Simulated scan of single mutants.
Amino acid sequence: MPELDGSDAPAQIDLGGGVAFLHTPSIPSRGGLALTHGAGGNCESVLLQRIAAVWAGAGFTVLRFDLPFRVRKPKGPPHPSYSAEDRLGIAAAVDRLRAETSGFIAFGGHSYGGRQGSMMAAEHPGCVDGLVLTSYPLHPPGKPEKARIQHLPELRIPTVVLHGTKDPFGTTSELRSALALVPAPTLLVDFEGAGHDLAAAKYDAAARTLTAAVELFGTEQSDTSAAGPVFCPSR
């Protein structure tokens, strides 16, 4: 797996005042991945750094960035009243990524970040071409009756979900039922014994995000590469 050594060091860029890193592949870019974190972390998590290294090593331009709630405060969870602002931050990051590369543009997000990105994609069709969601927080732990599925029938893009079988935010069967609501191709990848953090080093989750995306997005990439850019409503 590619590592973030000196030769592969990403460029730190300004993205609305928050921390953001642009990973540029050493070969001509074949597309892009906008990548963000969950409620308890930031874009410098080990999982996100590994995902960015793997995708950049495979020829994708990766924009790894902090969500607006993390820009406002260095620690602590997001407040629900500001979630729309986080979705606008995701849209702005995708816009910036489209200015850096062409072709198939995917959004990747862990937990809360993935949920907000999927909601943004449902609200604004065409903003991204595919989703790669790690540890989607289907419901609060112990509260399956509060499933976060309202927007799923509005998704029109292929969606990959990577999930640990010991994740308290949803079981495999619950996620499978939820993904059945998406009127587009989906792929659920389970990690036996993994929790919500997916234990990046133990399970090699980063590499699996790429292999799963290539498997599901393959035909969509060729269709999208001929089209012009579709910009997100970030303003």
Rank of each mutant, 00 (worst) to 15 (best):
A184G: 07
L67D: 06
R50A: 15
F60I: 00
G59Y: 05
A39E: 08
P158Q: 14
V62D: 10
S7P: 01
V62L: 11
S26L: 12
F169H: 11
F191M: 12
H79T: 03
G103L: 07
Y82R: 13
T219F: 01
G89W: 00
A93R: 08
I51W: 00
D5W: 05
F104W: 14
L155P: 04
F217Q: 05
A9W: 15
T24I: 14
I90G: 05
G228L: 00
S173I: 07
A34K: 05
F21Y: 15
G193R: 11
A206N: 01
K73C: 03
E215L: 05
F191W: 12
R208E: 06
S45E: 13
L63N: 09
A206W: 01
D14S: 14
A93Q: 11
E174K: 08
L181C: 05
T36C: 13
T36S: 11
G32N: 06
H110P: 08
T172K: 14
S173K: 10
F65A: 04
V54S: 10
R72K: 07
R70N: 01
K166P: 00
G31K: 04
G41W: 01
R64E: 03
A11E: 15
A199M: 09
D95Q: 02
H163Y: 04
F217P: 04
V46Q: 13
P183M: 10
V128L: 05
K146H: 13
D14W: 09
D197H: 03
E174D: 07
C127W: 10
G59R: 06
I149Q: 02
P78R: 01
R148F: 06
P78Y: 01
V94S: 07
R156K: 14
C127T: 07
D66Y: 02
S29G: 09
D204R: 13
V182H: 05
P80S: 07
G31L: 08
V182R: 03
N42P: 10
C43A: 09
A91V: 02
A93D: 11
A20I: 03
L181D: 06
P185L: 13
D95H: 04
Q116C: 05
E3K: 12
L181V: 01
G193I: 11
G117E: 10
A227C: 00
P141M: 12
L63R: 09
E215A: 10
D223A: 01
A207I: 01
S222T: 14
H139V: 10
V71Q: 14
A9C: 13
K166L: 09
T36L: 06
H163A: 08
F21D: 06
L35R: 03
L22I: 12
K73H: 10
V71D: 08
P125C: 09
G57V: 04
